[in-house]
Design a protein around this nucleic acid. Structure first.
Length: 395
DNA sequence: TCTGGGGTCCTAGGACCC
DNA sequence: TCTGGGGTCCTAGGACCC
């Protein structure tokens, strides 16, 4: 039985929430994002603003130049949007029990088998949109198709307030005229490389052999693009995908050279990361320092600890040591931040109580090491493994 | 024009191991 | 004494996404 995947995408979400909450802003160009006159970008803008060619991720200075003087500029109110998002996700749970939230304003639903209960895909989609509108007074664009890729492209195909259903036998007709950049993995850098070969559409892309694509894009990306061009993609919905890292970073209003400011900022970021990690009951084995110099040169430095941590001081100390190990002082810094990553699936360990019989699973790296050790023991005998195998001495 | 903040995934090279 | 093959882990960078 073939699957049916639905993608739900709220229209201009942040801007729509602001216009909903402030009726006097409706029908006017509105930008949610950085403060005009400062560094930053447009997070989202209303459809009235999009008519001036403004879009997400556009530098705010450029947007200001394009937009009329009566444009409304507001800073994001993330708590507000998160609250509305939770309401929407709750609505989606009434449509199907299999909901995957992919971002604050987007979700995939597995609606396979719902046709017998509800009706054809068009009815499932229309019902979803109606329930969202009733609950939060916002519009969503909905796409339904045989897998995630097609569902996502279908929701993009008719915005705002659209509903597009792509049946399996029309997938190729649907994809063929689309530009290369609709495919996952073909962005601003990679797509032009293929366009230089004279390829413009997904239909064109199918002329390239798998070998050619793998050679040009790498084994993994080449394979993915080859499959996507034929409408083949993941058709599973993953209700509870957990995040794999926690980070905090900030861009300074003006570039910073004062080491004391950098140190204080890093301390703040480490506190934020530690707080979030403890809140989620996670500990990370890897601390990563991120730094961006003038004009826009980004570097990362990371260290794997001997024990996972969620401790502010330890995160800060590690990040600061990573900073000090480089000859970076006196270079103007645009951005600095820190993150942690590397935890096993079975964390949080803290949730285990004396009465809980489950044991935490080892960190994936540890699990792989153990498996390797077992394999080596099988091959070479019990006595071959010493302590410290595969462990490198600290630098 | 001048590029936020939060993420994910992939690649590639070197160290290290049997 | 000199050497390949197969594998993992760690690190840095980069492309990409919302």
């Amino acid at each position: 039985m073939s699957r049916l995947v639905m993608h739900v995408d709220l229209d201009a979400f942040f801007a729509a929430v602001e216009q909903r909450d402030h009726p006097e802003w409706r029908g006017r160009p509105l930008v949610v994002g950085a403060e005009p006159g400062r560094r930053g970008v447009v997070a989202t803008c209303s459809y009235e603003a999009r008519r001036y060619g403004v879009h997400s991720a556009m530098p705010i200075a450029k947007a200001v130049r394009r937009l009329p003087p009566d444009t409304i500029y507001v800073r994001p109110r993330m708590e507000r949007y998160a609250r509305v998002s939770r309401q929407i996700m709750a609505v989606l749970e009434t449509i199907s029990p299999r909901v995957e939230k992919v971002s604050i304003d987007e979700a995939y639903l597995d609606v396979s088998g719902l046709e017998r209960l509800v009706g054809p895909p068009e009815v499932i989609g229309a019902r979803t949109k109606a329930r969202i509108r009733e609950a939060v007074h916002l519009t969503a664009s909905v796409g339904i198709g045989p897998n995630r890729l097609i569902a996502k492209l279908a929701s993009d195909a008719d915005k705002p307030d659209g509903l597009t259903v792509v049946r399996p036998d029309t997938v190729n007709d649907f994809l063929d005229p689309m530009p290369l950049t609709v495919l996952r993995g073909l962005g601003a850098k990679t797509a032009p490389r293929l366009e230089r070969l004279g390829l413009e559409t997904v239909g064109d892309l199918r002329r390239l052999s798998l070998e050619e694509l793998r050679r040009r894009l790498g084994a993994q990306a080449g394979m993915q693009v080859h499959l996507q061009a034929r409408g083949i993609a993941d058709d599973q919905v993953y209700p509870a995908s957990k995040r794999k890292s926690i980070s905090k970073e900030t861009t300074f209003g003006e570039d910073v050279t004062d080491a004391a400011v950098l140190k204080d900022t890093l301390r703040w970021a480490a506190q934020e990361v530690g707080y979030l990690a403890r809140h989620e009951q996670r500990k990370g084995l890897v601390v990563t320092l991120k730094i961006r110099f003038h004009p826009f040169e980004t570097h990362t430095r990371s260290r794997t600890l001997s024990e996972p941590t969620a401790n502010d001081v330890e995160i800060f100390r590690t990040a600061w040591e990573l900073f000090q190990a480089e000859c970076w002082t006196s270079r103007p810094v645009r951005l600095i931040g820190v993150g942690i990553s590397g935890w096993g699936e079975a964390q949080p360990v803290a949730q285990l109580s004396l009465f809980d019989e489950r044991m935490p699973e080892p960190h994936p790296a540890q699990a792989r090491l153990d498996a390797t050790l077992d394999a080596i023991r099988d091959r070479f005998g019990r006595g071959t493994i010493q302590r410290g195998l595969n462990r490198r001495p600290p630098r």
